[in-house]
Write a protein that binds this DNA or RNA. Structure first.
Length: 445
DNA sequence: TTAGGGTTAG
């Protein structure tokens, strides 16, 4: 590429006016378009080029808008929408599709529908964007009925619905829809084949359920991946690590990790979480060191995972050091989840006062999960007075959640303050809160 | 030169 580029330059085919003071003025629409799409991940630059082209009276065409619209926030997107109308390119199918996706992303389902109606004929890409629009706005019923009305479907149509159920928390339906896909003539006759995205989605749905059925389903998908040479890239590999980690199959976790060719930060994150939740906290921390050695940059999720490992392993000193260094080393700002981990870390190991101190000095108000972690610590270490004080705050934040009531009530029961305990149990009843019964499971192999 | 679906989070 670079050699060809040099030839073009030395032969004078590129930018005849490059010696002129403002060569940009001579750049035609086509060159601007190419540049704008090259700056795909640099929204600022592509936008700058767009205004530059307008300032130089270079007219944008239907190719100009989609790459900018793809990364535009809503207010800018609306402005561009009117620009497409003014310049007579609104009806272009590429523009319509990106506008549809823009409105879907911003939860403006009615706007998305209106754009969808502009398509004169069936277009699979537009339908897929609309399927996603319904999914992202919680309307799976309409998504499925649109899906069923489509004269053709491709792998993206199927994947969008599989993912749609997962987006709405209906993981069982997501897996069943994948099953339907595998038995449908589209797949049986070889017109459609699940790809990396499809497999990653359904594996993630399996990981979000528990029980043997979900694990077996995930294993079948894994088998399909191997037998059908679906790429074991970052997406599928990371989903598999996550699935096996959640199911306690650490040897499978390690096998997948070992054979992955490309590993990104999210892969390492899934690995750290898997080790941390299976009693191998020390190795989880070693993985964190590995990330840095690989030249990768930990992200916010990495710290959630590694702080969890510290909490489980009772590595108080290491955990606090990590928490304090995340901003210094990587400019990652602690969010609520990180505070939750640190409170859990301090609380479990009996550093109740330090935990209280951190809660008092947080830059934002603690939410129910942080207070809940603290409350749990108070219970373990019998700090009933502090527990009741914090518990009341937690109840105010999470009135419909049974966990805090149960914790407070158990805490009183342990101190044989039966009247307090009973009062709290009655409050649960009166507030109409359902206590979800816990269960244990024995997995026979 | 342009469009639609994907992984990790106590």
């Amino acid at each position: 590429m670079k050699q060809i580029h040099s030839l073009i330059v030395t032969n004078g085919h590129l930018l005849h006016h490059s010696n002129a003071p403002s060569s940009h003025q001579w750049m035609p629409t086509l060159l601007y378009n190419a540049l704008i799409s090259a700056y795909d991940n640099h929204h600022h630059k592509s936008l700058h080029l767009f205004s530059h082209m307008l300032a130089n009276q270079v007219p944008p065409n239907s190719y100009t808008f989609p790459p900018i619209l793809k990364s535009s926030p809503l207010p800018l997107g609306s402005t561009l929408h009117s620009q497409t109308l003014k310049r007579g390119v609104f009806s272009d199918p590429f523009i319509l599709t990106t506008l549809l996706a823009l409105y879907a992303r911003n939860n403006l389902l009615p706007h998305a529908r209106k754009v969808f109606e502009e398509f004169p004929v069936f277009l699979i890409v537009a339908c897929n964007a609309m399927l996603n629009a319904f999914s992202m706005n919680g309307d799976m019923e309409t998504a499925v009925s649109l899906f069923e009305s489509m004269p053709q479907r491709d792998v993206i149509s199927w994947t969008t619905v599989v993912n749609g159920f997962a987006l709405n928390g209906n993981f069982g339906a997501s897996i069943r829809f994948f099953g339907k896909m595998m038995n449908h003539k589209d797949v049986v006759e070889g017109l459609v084949k699940p790809n990396e995205a499809t497999c990653a989605c359904v594996l993630s749905s399996c990981a979000n359920l528990d029980g043997k059925t979900a694990l077996d389903c995930g294993k079948q998908v894994h088998g399909y991946v191997v037998m059908n040479e679906v790429k074991l890239g970052v997406f599928v590999g990371t989903s598999l690590i996550n699935l096996y980690g959640k199911m306690g199959c650490l040897s499978d976790v390690e096998n997948v990790f070992r054979i992955m060719v490309v590993r990104e930060v999210c892969t390492w994150n899934a690995m750290i979480s898997s080790l941390a939740s299976n009693g191998r906290e020390k190795e989880a921390l070693e993985m964190f060191e590995q990330i840095k050695l690989q030249g990768l940059k930990p992200n916010s999720i990495t710290y959630v995972a590694v702080l969890t490992a510290c909490a489980r392993g009772k590595f108080v000193r290491e955990g606090l050091d990590l928490f304090r260094s995340m901003w210094q080393d990587f400019r990652i700002e602690p969010i609520m989840k990180h505070y939750g981990c640190v409170i859990d870390l301090l609380g479990r190991s009996g550093h109740i006062q330090e935990a209280a101190e951190i809660i008092r000095n947080m830059p934002f108000q603690p939410d129910a999960s942080v207070l809940g972690a603290f409350l749990g610590a108070c219970r373990i270490h019998g700090a009933i007075k502090l527990g009741e004080e914090i518990g009341k705050k937690a109840l105010k934040l999470q009135t419909q959640h049974c966990g805090q009531y149960v914790l407070l009530s158990s805490m009183n029961a342990e101190k044989e303050r039966w009247d307090h305990a009973a009062d709290l149990r009655r409050e649960i009843m009166e507030a109409g809160i359902q206590k979800i019964p816990a269960y244990s499971m024995v997995h026979l192999t």
